[in-house]
C-alpha cells in the first residue's frame, strides 16, 4: 500500500512537471497535450471518490499554478474525477471481474482501456476548452481544439502506457 502510495506521489509530481513542459506545446496552433490527466485515469478504482476528487483538484490546481490559468484545470479535473467511475463502468460493467484495481492495458485489455481513456480525455478536453472559451461565439475553433487535443493527448498517453507496460514486461 505504501509502495503504491509512493508510486502515485511520484506520478503526481512527474505529471505536474511533464505538463509544465507540455503547456508550451501547441501543435498547429490548436492541439495541446494534456498529459497530466494520466494520473487521474490511472488512480485505482477502489479508491474512495472523495480521495479521487481531492487529488484531482490539487493536481489541477498545481497545473493552474504552473500555467497561470487559475481554476480552469482544477475545475475540469474535479469534473473528470466525479465522472471517472461512470465512464469506467460504461465500458467495464462487471467491476468484480477486475483483478488489478488500477486501470491499465493489462488489467482491462487494449480495447476497453483505449475506450475508457479516450472518453476520459475527451471529457476533460471538452470541459477545459469550454471553460477557456466561456462562450459559444467561436464554437468551431473550440470544437477543433477539443478534438485535436483529445487525439494528441490520447496518443501521448497511449505511448506512456506502452512504454510503462514494456518496461514491466522486460522486468518480468
Amino acid at each position: 500500500m505504501s509502495k503504491s502510495a509512493l508510486q502515485f506521489t511520484g506520478l503526481f509530481i512527474g505529471m505536474l512537471l511533464a505538463q509544465a513542459i507540455c503547456n508550451r506545446i501547441c501543435l498547429f496552433g490548436v492541439a495541446v497535450p494534456m498529459v497530466f490527466i494520466y494520473f487521474i485515469i490511472r488512480l485505482p478504482m477502489n479508491l474512495s471518490v472523495n480521495w479521487v476528487i481531492c487529488l484531482s483538484f490539487f493536481l489541477g490546481l498545481g497545473v493552474d499554478i504552473f500555467g497561470d490559468t487559475q481554476g480552469m484545470n482544477a475545475l475540469a479535473c474535479t469534473v473528470l474525477a466525479v465522472c471517472r467511475r461512470s465512464v469506467f463502468l460504461l465500458y467495464f460493467p462487471r467491476e468484480d471481474d477486475l483483478g488489478n484495481p488500477i486501470p491499465s492495458i493489462r488489467s482491462l485489455g487494449i480495447a476497453v482501456y483505449a475506450k475508457y481513456m479516450v472518453t476520459a480525455v475527451l471529457l476533460y478536453c471538452t470541459v477545459v476548452f469550454l471553460i477557456q472559451a466561456f462562450a459559444l461565439k467561436h464554437f468551431e475553433i473550440t470544437l477543433l481544439r477539443i478534438i485535436s487535443s483529445t487525439i494528441l493527448t490520447f496518443l501521448v498517453l497511449l505511448g506512456f502506457d506502452s512504454i510503462a507496460t514494456t518496461r514491466r514486461e522486460k522486468r518480468l
Binding site: 489541477g60 493552474d64 487559475q70 481554476g71 480552469m72 482544477a74 475545475l75 474535479t78 471553460i131
Partner: peptide, 8 residues
C-alpha cells in the same frame, strides 16, 4: 467545484 469557480 465552488472553490475552482471562485478561483476561475
Amino acid at each position: 467545484a465552488i472553490l475552482s469557480c471562485r478561483l476561475l
